[in-house]
């Protein structure tokens, strides 16, 4: 049943900019409806702050349907909050109770510096893709799409890895701030497909090198990334990437 009068206490990380010192601040939000999304509750709070002449809370969001990967709140110690398989924008207030206190922080990782409040800079992910997360094919006369049959099983596995939305929850969840789940998902997708074969070895080496250069930590196989991934990207991708990586290292001339 929906409820319209929930009272929620929020403790939110406020930080003016990258140089400023941040702190948790407490806010009360009344008349929260259980049908609201978590971000709509923030809309209500921000509306109130603006009317009071205060600075609204900055947070990243765009599609609000769980696919763009922009929203990124660390809620009660969990990236994207308590539900499994759900981004912050798809988390609804029916997952909370009247009177709850909720702590909201930005992603925490050296490679994701804070821009303001809950907004962080994730451009490191783009640079990792630019280092090798592609198949080098120019636009032009590619061969007929059905000239290269790919088994349904392989296509499905590649798709499962490609479903990553690049939100960075895996990094935020990891005690080492490792980006292995993100990187391995792309490596796996492209290494499973025949189109990715020619660059298979250089791709994994280049992407891993860029990942290290960005300051992400090492993977120690705790599996926190998979547990918090809103798209259910499996840690088996990491095992797959490790095999790809070692094979490529051994073959290096």
């Amino acid at each position: 049943m929906s409820e319209n009068n929930m009272k929620i206490t929020l403790k939110v990380w406020r930080q003016r900019n990258n140089k400023a010192k941040g702190a948790l601040e407490t806010y009360k939000v009344d008349e929260v409806s259980s049908d609201m999304s978590f971000l709509e509750m923030f809309d209500v709070l921000n509306d109130k702050l603006i009317r009071e002449g205060k600075d609204p809370i900055a947070f990243d969001h765009d599609c609000r349907e769980g696919i763009c990967g922009m929203c990124s709140m660390y809620i009660n110690g969990q990236p994207h909050g308590p539900l499994q398989g759900v981004t912050t924008c798809q988390l609804h207030m029916r997952s909370f109770k009247d009177g709850d206190t909720i702590v909201v922080e930005p992603w925490r990782a050296k490679a994701f510096p804070v821009i303001k409040d809950l907004v962080v800079d994730r451009s490191a992910f783009d640079r990792i893709i630019a280092a090798g997360g592609f198949i080098s094919v120019n636009t032009g006369n590619a061969q007929d799409a059905n000239a290269l049959p790919i088994s349904k099983e392989l296509a499905d596995r590649a798709f499962a890895a490609a479903a990553c939305i690049g939100c960075g929850a895996c990094v935020a969840a990891c005690k080492n701030s490792s980006a292995m789940l993100f990187v391995s998902a792309k490596v796996t997708q492209l290494s499973l497909l025949p189109q990715g074969e020619p660059e298979r070895q250089s791709r994994v080496l280049d992407m891993a090198a860029q990942m290290d250069a960005e300051g992400f930590g090492s993977c120690t196989n705790t599996g926190a990334c998979e547990a918090e991934c809103p798209k259910g990207i499996s840690v088996s991708n990491i095992a797959h990437m490790n095999r790809e990586f070692f094979a490529a290292e051994l073959n290096k001339k």
């Binding site: 590619a142 061969q143 790919i150 349904k152 499905d156 590649a158 497909l193 189109q195």
Partner: peptide, 22 residues
């Protein structure tokens, strides 16, 4: 038709039938 060819060449994992066709 070229768009589908181009996307498959890039590794876009479209849905496929058991025989491997799109």
């Amino acid at each position: 038709a070229n768009i589908i060819d181009q996307c498959v060449a890039q590794g876009v994992p479209f849905a496929r039938e058991y025989g491997g066709m799109l």
